[in-house]
Each structure stands twice: as C-alpha cells, then as structure tokens.
Design a protein around this nucleic acid. Structure first.
Length: 282
DNA sequence: CACCATGTTCCTTG
DNA sequence: CCAAGGAACATGGT
C-alpha cells in the first residue's frame, strides 16, 4: 500500500494505538523481513520495551521504544514494500495468511502483514540515512533539487523515484505529479528549466498533500482483506458514490485525458509503468 | 498460460 | 569511480 501519503496516514492511525503499549512477546513467521537483524537480537531488544513515539521518513516508519533495562531509546524501522500492512487488532481476530511479525501487546496484537514479503521490520536504520529531503518540508528546496537534476540525463520520471534525491515519491504519484506539472516523463532531467523544476516541485507537494488529506478522511479498515485499495480513493461527501477516484493519469492507459480528451499512453521506464498524456505533457 | 502489480537492492554493462 | 538498465525477491489478480 505504500507511497508517502499511505505511510503518513498509517503513521497517524497507529500512533495513538501504540503509544505506551508494551511488547510482551514477538512472533516472527517470516524471518526474511527482519533482514539484516537476527530473530534473537530482535527479541532481546524489543520484548519488554514500550512504544514511545512513531514518525515517518519517506516511505519508512520509525518506531521509538524504551525498555526498562536499556538507557537510550531503541529505533525500529518499518517499510511496507509493495503489499505490506500494519494494524492493531484484538487478539480474538484471526491472523491474516501472510502475517510476518506479530507483536503481543497484551489484549491486542500489533501485526505486520505482507503478501509478497518485500517489506521489512528491522533494527537496521541505515536506509533512512541515505534518503533525500522530505517533499513536504522546507528541506525540499528548488535550488538543490535543480542542481541534482542537472547532473543527470536520466528521464525525469526515473529521477522522481530516486529516494536519495527526494524521499517518498513512488510510481503512482510520480506519474500524477508530472501530469499536473505538464512535463513529459521522458524528458531528460538535465533539460528541465528552472521554471519547470519549480513547477514540478510545487506539483509533487500538491499531489502528496492532497493524497494525505484524502486518505485521512477515508474510514480506513486495516483489518479487512483489501484495505489498500482505499488509499487511492477519497471520500466524496456530496456524491452519491461513497468514494471518488482521485488519480488523474495513473492506470488510465487508453482512456481520455481529462484535459484534452486524447488517449493516455502507457510506457515502460526503468522497468516500471508510466502513464502520461503526450499532448499535455511536453 | 500470459502479463501485471504502490519497492528496493544487487549485478552487469558501458 | 559513475550512470543506466535489468533481474531478483514472492504472491496474487485478471
């Protein structure tokens, strides 16, 4: 379910549910999601520890815990990969098929579930140290962004997915931001003018901000079988439909562009699908 | 059977 | 050394 907005909504959802809860036990059903942390180490550090904070960085969740024995806080890093989910449930609720890690919180379980097991829950936080600026913070400055883009001939769409350049944009919102900015995903990064770079920066921020706002109003069901689809929908209070699509180009190949009504095109870049309007994006 | 999927990392090639 | 492209990881949906 993960790009920055989904992870942000998840962090807001989990924060009050985990605060001050103590981990009584940890059950790991898929040890590969701990990589490179070992099961022994994870249990030693986390059993008896209490959740004291939760933050998001890019697509990562950072859990802060304190244990009675250790003085300084422990950081636990979570990433959802392509299909990961996290939720808190009463123990009476049965575990999903692909539950990878189950934290026993007493009356409740905190579950990390991941169909494809591409995600991680680990004590190794080195990945966050390599991330670029947060797109929605003041650290995301146009000058530095422009400088970084000037150093590469790679297509701008591919650069948007580079987490060391900017943290949190994924395949869906990269297409969405370029559509809003009117910039072709194929344009070499070093060909963007400063005006285009600034426009793209604004578009990225607008797309992500609206996605977070939309996702936050959806009555999320983290227990149900298919909650991830909800993240790309927003509640439309005045519409007869309960949900309204908010994506403008992604997954719309062959359908009419919402601006010029010409067909949206799908191409492959860096082995990922890109959707764009060849007429509106130059 | 074919192809597709919200991500990251590793390997190869130039 | 770097940039760029592709495969691998694993499971499920259409």
């Amino acid at each position: 379910m993960p790009e920055l907005p989904e992870v942000e909504v998840l962090a807001r959802h989990l924060r009050p549910l985990l605060r001050d809860k103590t981990i009584r036990a940890v059950e790991v059903r898929r040890a590969k999601v701990l990589r490179p942390t070992l099961l022994r180490e994870l249990k030693k550090v986390l059993v008896g520890a209490r959740f004291t904070g939760l933050s998001r960085r890019g697509k990562y969740l950072l859990f802060e815990l304190r244990s009675p024995t250790a003085g300084k806080p422990v950081m636990l890093l979570g990433h959802l990969g392509m299909t990961g989910r996290m939720f808190v449930t009463p123990k009476s609720v049965s575990l999903p098929k692909h539950a990878a890690v189950i934290f026993d919180l007493g009356r409740q379980n905190f579950i990390y579930e991941d169909t494809r097991y591409f995600g991680r829950i680990t004590l190794d936080i080195s990945a966050v140290l390599k991330l670029g600026p947060e797109p929605l913070s003041d650290d995301f400055q146009p000058a530095a962004f422009a400088r970084a883009l000037k150093r590469s001939r790679q297509a701008i769409k591919v650069k948007l997915l580079d987490q060391s350049l900017l943290a949190g944009v994924g395949n869906i919102y990269a297409s969405e931001a370029l559509f809003l900015a009117g910039i072709s995903p194929k344009r070499p990064a070093n060909q963007l003018t400063l005006v285009q770079v600034k426009k793209l920066r604004r578009s990225v921020r607008e797309i992500l901000t609206k996605a977070v706002a939309g996702g936050s109003t959806v009555p999320l069901n983290f227990i149900g079988g298919r909650s991830d689809g909800l993240f790309y929908f927003g509640r439309a209070p005045d519409t007869p439909d309960y949900y309204v699509e908010r994506l403008r180009v992604y997954d719309r190949a062959g359908k009419p562009c919402i601006h010029c009504h010409r067909p949206i095109k799908r191409i492959i870049q860096a082995a990922r699908s890109t959707f764009y309007c060849p007429h509106c994006q130059i």
